[in-house]
Design a protein around this nucleic acid. Sequence first.
DNA 1: CTGAAAAAGTGCAACCACTACACTTTTTAA
DNA 2: TTAAAAAGTGTAGTGGTTGCACTTTTTCAG
Lengths: 197, 197
Amino acid sequence: MRYGDAVTELGRRERKKLQTRKSISDAATRLFLERGFDEVGVKEIADTADVSVTTLFKHFPSKEALLFDEDEEQESALVAVVRNRGDRSIPMALRDHFVRAAQGHADHPQFEIFQRLVLETPALRDYGHRMWTRHQDALARAIAEETGVPADDVRCAALARFALEAREVIFDREDRERAADEVFGLLEHGWAADQQA
Amino acid sequence: MRYGDAVTELGRRERKKLQTRKSISDAATRLFLERGFDEVGVKEIADTADVSVTTLFKHFPSKEALLFDEDEEQESALVAVVRNRGDRSIPMALRDHFVRAAQGHADHPQFEIFQRLVLETPALRDYGHRMWTRHQDALARAIAEETGVPADDVRCAALARFALEAREVIFDREDRERAADEVFGLLEHGWAADQQA
DNA sequence: CTGAAAAAGTGCAACCACTACACTTTTTAA
DNA sequence: TTAAAAAGTGTAGTGGTTGCACTTTTTCAG
């Protein structure tokens, strides 16, 4: 590791480990999208990735986890949105973030299929929702810091939770941008009133 | 069925079915509270209730469901709170409902143990949360009717969802009444602002 | 009262996600 | 060079859950 800390050099071992992980994840994603979550067993995924079932579970804690592989990015993105919101209010900045993300996904049709798979498979919908709401604490802390209140302020926790839940309320609607306006409008007004007090 | 429709007369068969269901539920609850959810197998519950495992699963869809047996009451209670709120706003009526429920539970120490079991067992916490948020649609419809807007109004859905989620945000806090004030205050102001528009 | 249909319950075998274990192979680093 | 650390493997299991063929109980019409 010579030129700075940002680029972490990897030894052969870690490179191979990452490669194994990726081949498992790829096999799982492909098979799930092709035939559905419940129609594919872990054994078949392991075989396709050419590893043992034991190895598969050393890399992923559950069958559902095979499909949700990028978590930290989303969390830091949420925190960044609150931090770099400019002159917008926090709820409005989050609203813009969700709307922009939804539009960005609309580009790649591959993502639409992924989304439908998750929405239509109860186990995946639940798992995804649980992973998503795990960001509540980080988001609440960011909001608290920006607002200048204690990190465990209840209103910040509530706003964080509500904003995260808002996503699912909005995703079920036809006109998502309009829905986002109304739902986040509710949070916006409540939040603004609380701030003045 | 002679004296009115409210009391449904049951034949011997349905009475026995209900009795079987109850003995299973009772055995499960007792064993779970005594030794913990993960430390008791369905086989043992079935044996204790003197039924087969097959029968157990004919009455309950999953191991978790054995502990959550009273669903409809909660839902109708929520709807009733919105309907009979008097001159209070909808968010405030819901706030009172949750605070009162929490205080009512504080009376019976048996309920504290039940609550801790659920909170400390991830599988139960998740299942309970999922059951709880199933009431979103019914609550949203009640709110819409009271407000005089279409039944599928997004803001009503959002308020319903947020109020249901508020419960968990509040339950994690020490001073629940104070937390309820702040969290529902946020919804109250947002909701009021939207109503005037 | 009788006999058949409907429903509740049973025991067994199996499926599937997941884990513990004892083991081999590969990679690392002193 | 070599020994420890880490990745991977196969097997045998656990535990929740389901399908199936079956018996028992309850109902109800003739």
